[in-house]
Design a protein around this nucleic acid. Structure first.
Lengths: 234, 234
DNA sequence: CCCGGAAATTTTGTCGACAAATAGAATACA
DNA sequence: TGTATTCTATTTGTCGACAAAATTTCCGGG
């Protein structure tokens, strides 16, 4: 255990405790630092962050609300497992949200949105060139979330955010086992999406969203098949 | 204040505290017993439910996670306001979810689902005949949620549940000011939806979902215009 | 009479402690 | 040796109390 967190936490603003814990744990769950199914000990976290169990528990309740952890009554909470059985439901939802957010962004975006989206795309491009897997995952999610926000529909944005979060865990597996060279195709598709949105072409934006989604789904499917084969070989 | 809650809470199982408070407050918010924008006092709730502030706070954190209340740092939490400005975003999301859940239910339902949906529809019909507004709202939401669950996609179901919840507050306004006689059309449309789902007609189910959504959107739009006029007359 | 600042009150965020519930260890028994 | 049972120990759920932040009240000056 690192006591870095505890040291930094010696002096902080009142009310920020739970948020800090929430943010850190959320990232650690999504980056697979905390393994799915792994137990979550409240006192351990309290010691690590240098605060009492109260703000820890608040953070855990919020994480449970988003489905990132599961709490059994009177028993230790665990990091949510990745549900490989209902994966088709995830893909369906993800594909539809790519389409919808693409269309709505083309319809409702303002100039500042395009600038922001383009900036995040540039970041993503740099991450791809540097072959920094974690940065790729993070900036890719930020890029698509920016498109969703340009669509100005908080209900779709919230669902999409949840799906992209869950996707971060799956992609983490992907980039761990693959060879980190594929995604240049994603860069090109991103550029096309930006152009279609900026041109306010609703139909094309939605279509590109679907193409992009199918692309990702296909990659992950390949990964899953490969993993299954590895399992069989053990 | 009623001390009924406090009396009932004298003996309850450990771990149930926060859930009770969450369920009660959720219903009171959605039925407009707690007015939007109204403050939420933790100690008052603690006295009312006969427990300490800890489980109360846990319930509030969960409600905040679902957007039913808003918490300002170091300041009292308030019941979320109904956002009449971004109503079009709500209608867009609701319409799409009606379509998607209708289609997926037609695709993935099992016999038991149809029985359950039909039972809830019968309940809805009884509520309409009895002109019981609160029962109509609740059973209508339960009916559509059952369709969503028959679609077997938890991501869509979760979003739809959230939208139906938010809709409960809007419909509550609707049934308060209108004359509680309209909805027989809804009964007929519900029957058509059940038939299309049972026949596994994906296209028709999705189309009926859209028709039903447009119907509701139109009714609420009329209500909103009427309300605005009332405002102008004050 | 209105405005600005200080004191008092209210309300939240955090803490340490205790009790209930469960899991694990140790023991008795077949 | 395997199984049931009691005992121990860990971990959660709840409580009451305290301190920080913010709201309200009060008061003095203009």
């Amino acid at each position: 255990m690192t006591d870095r967190d505890a040291n930094e936490a010696t002096e902080r603003r009142r009310g920020s405790g739970a948020k800090i814990v929430y943010d850190v744990l959320r990232d650690e769950i999504l980056d697979l630092v905390l393994p799915p199914g792994g137990p979550i000990d409240e006192v351990e976290l309290a010691e690590r962050f240098g605060m009492s169990r109260t703000p820890i528990r608040e953070a855990l309740v919020r994480l449970a609300g988003e489905g990132l952890i599961e709490t059994l009554p009177n028993r230790s909470a665990i990091v949510s497992n990745i549900d490989f059985l209902n994966m088709h439901a995830y893909f369906d939802a993800l594909t539809l949200m790519y389409r919808v957010t693409g269309r709505l962004a083309a319809e409702h975006h303002k100039p500042a949105d395009i600038a922001r989206i383009a900036a995040l795309q540039a970041e993503f491009e740099r991450a791809v060139e540097a072959q920094d897997a974690l940065a790729m995952i993070a900036t890719n999610a930020a890029f698509h979330l920016a498109i969703a926000e340009a669509g100005r529909n908080p209900y779709f944005t919230a669902l999409f955010k949840r799906l992209l979060d869950e996707g971060r865990r799956i992609l983490r597996l992907y980039y761990q086992s693959y060879d980190d060279r594929l995604p240049h195709r994603f860069v090109v598709e991103h550029e096309e999406m930006i152009a279609a949105i900026a041109a306010r072409d609703l139909v094309l934006s939605e279509q590109l969203g679907k193409v992009h989604a199918d692309q990702i789904v296909e990659q992950v499917r390949k990964l899953l098949v490969r993993e299954e084969r590895l399992d069989l070989m053990l």
